[in-house]
Amino acid sequence: MLKVRDLSVSFRTEQGIVRAVDGVSFEVGEGELLGVVGESGSGKTVSLLAVMGLITDPNAIIAGSIQYRGRELVGLKSRAMRVLRGKEIAMIFQDPMTALTPVYTVGWQIAEQVLAHQRISKAAAWQRAIDLLAEVNIPKPEEAAHRYPHQLSGGMRQRVVIAMALSCNPALLVADEPTTALDVTVQAQILDLLHKLRRNHGSAIVFITHDMGVMAEIADRMLVMYAGRVVERGTKEELFRVPMHPYTQALLDSIPPLTGEKPRRLRAIPGTPPILLNRPPGCAFAPRCAQRFEKCSAEPELGNGERAAACFRVTA
């Protein structure tokens, strides 16, 4: 249902052009959960903001193709995009503390979205808001609808954001690190809720996170991003059991285990993620890679298959 081909997002800055997203391609099937993993600056958030048409920076240049159910979204008029956004494609944000307008009740904010896309009465929209709050397990939804964001805890606010995203039964849900800002017991509640909602609504979800543990729990298929590019693609099972790209492997190795024998030292990845400004040619991970060889000074291609990794060790 969503086909992204060769998507690039660059930002013009005073120091030069920053290629935040560089030739990213992926697909999302109906009802599927695609997990996108990467560290800060890997381009995972920017590429999904591009899908949502939410990059408003006048210095951004977006190239490539984003097709939603056969419709091209790149270059779509903002009016046409607005009709899709919030109705067919909805988004959940990282920080629930700042994602809601502070001066309106949460019920009002949910009803506002319903009214923007459906021809129903205000009373019906309010009732819909209450039903949605109940669906995301907010206790006493009638009362909660009258509350302002600052009166709710972080977990409750994230539920409100989720309720809002679900308000028009979107076919595609983009979730940008929806549990990162939450405590681990609250994260468990929210992941549980997303599981349930997925069963009930059948929306496809693109889930962005840096947490491999969360990924292991919810993803069907995964993309691993590094420095603006997709470095590995495959199903969750393939990626966790037989990681192909050295970066994926290293990422999994560097996480301290929760059970079993404690390693004396963690297997850390040396160095730091590259700066995207005026990036040198070649594999971006090569400077930190334990398996690099002569070929890595060229740019490795990510194959076209369902299972692929952008690494010369794999393709060689």
Binding site: M52, L54, T56, R82, V83, L84, R85, G86, K87, A90, M91, F93, D95, T98, A99, L100, T101, P102, E112, Q113, A116, H117, V161, M164, A165
Partner: peptide
């Protein structure tokens, strides 16, 4: 951030 949310709502 809430302006981005408002945009995402399709307002």
């Amino acid at each position: 951030d809430y302006i981005r949310t408002a945009r995402a709502k399709g307002l």
